[in-house]
């Protein structure tokens, strides 16, 4: 049955053509030039470039901060999605509407604002400074900026799943005597897990490459708070295109891998969505 609908609906050729053409012009050809430029280096050169201590350290900083930030966003995202779907309370619409703000606000503006808030002189920074905790110009600062950038991803991935998940399963579970936390753990959690992973993956990918907001807040100390995109920038400034593109290629491979995993999960996820929507 699945195969037969291949050509029943018209427009396959046209939509395939437009999609592939635009995808090639905007995404694939430009990305290919990155690969071509890297190909100027031999394989061992590429390895030498990307295993330099400073580059490795920057990978560590980038991956670590992006991971922590996405983890925070995963937890907060589930809470936010849960609150927005299940509860009624004043100002709910405003809260809901604000989630996408990080998409709409220029990252540079966000970076500048967050830096002035979290520096020792700022409102948040001075509070933490009393306990001897520094935020701006440390890895904590980078994480704060990345949490800001990644907020919408998990919320918006989990929200539709929670909406589709009707209360009947939970009701059944609680009638059978399951406690609230057990219902959540064993009934709800498995259902929203793929969506959480999707959101986490997208946020992680986005955070890994973030530049605009991070440079303002990071302090940019080699080995401490220097992120990989900044290394790429500094290689470019030394007119070392080959190194810059080699490092960029590693980042690119990472983002593609993340996305591919996300899409694998999403295929399963959409089955749940469809099953929840239509199967009931």
């Amino acid at each position: 049955m699945k195969r037969s609908n291949k050509r029943i609906i018209p427009g396959f050729g046209l939509s395939m053509g437009v999609t592939v053409t635009l995808l090639s012009v905007i995404v694939l050809i430009p990305l290919a030039s990155l690969v071509i430029f890297t190909a100027q280096l031999s394989f061992s050169d590429i390895i030498a470039v990307i295993t330099r201590d400073r580059v490795l350290a920057s990978f560590k900083v980038s991956f670590l901060t992006a991971f922590v930030a996405s983890l925070i966003n995963a937890v907060m995202g589930v809470i936010l999605a849960w609150v927005l779907v299940r509860y009624d309370f004043p100002f709910k619409r405003i809260l809901d509407g604000m989630i996408e703000l990080p998409f709409a606000l220029p990252t540079a503006v966000a970076g500048i604002a967050l830096t002035s808030l979290t520096a020792d002189k700022g409102i948040i920074g001075s509070f933490f400074a009393r306990f001897g905790i520094k935020i701006a110009y440390t890895r904590a600062g980078i994480t704060v900026a990345l949490v800001f950038i990644g907020i919408p991803f998990v919320v918006r991935a989990v929200q539709p799943v929670l909406e589709k998940l009707d209360g009947s399963l939970e009701e059944a579970a609680s009638t059978l005597g399951a406690s609230r936390s057990r219902t959540f753990r064993q009934v709800i959690f498995p259902e929203i897990m793929p969506a959480v992973f999707t959101g986490f993956g997208l946020a992680f990918g986005r955070c890994l490459g973030e530049y605009g907001s991070v440079v303002f807040i990071a302090g940019n100390q080699p080995f401490e708070t220097e992120i990989t995109p900044l290394i790429i920038m500094s290689e470019l400034q030394e007119y070392d295109y080959a190194s810059a593109t080699a490092i960029a290629l590693v980042m690119l491979a990472a983002s593609f891998l993340i996305l591919f995993l996300v899409n694998l999960i999403q295929v399963r996820n959409s089955k749940i969505l469809r099953g929840g929507g239509k199967g009931a």
């Binding site: 830096t115 110009y137 440079v215 940019n220």
Partner: peptide, 16 residues
């Protein structure tokens, strides 16, 4: 703080 440009460094020192 090792800013990426001279102006950024001045901002870090003066404003922050």
């Amino acid at each position: 703080v090792l800013d990426s440009g001279a102006r950024g460094a001045t901002t870090t020192f003066v404003e922050n």
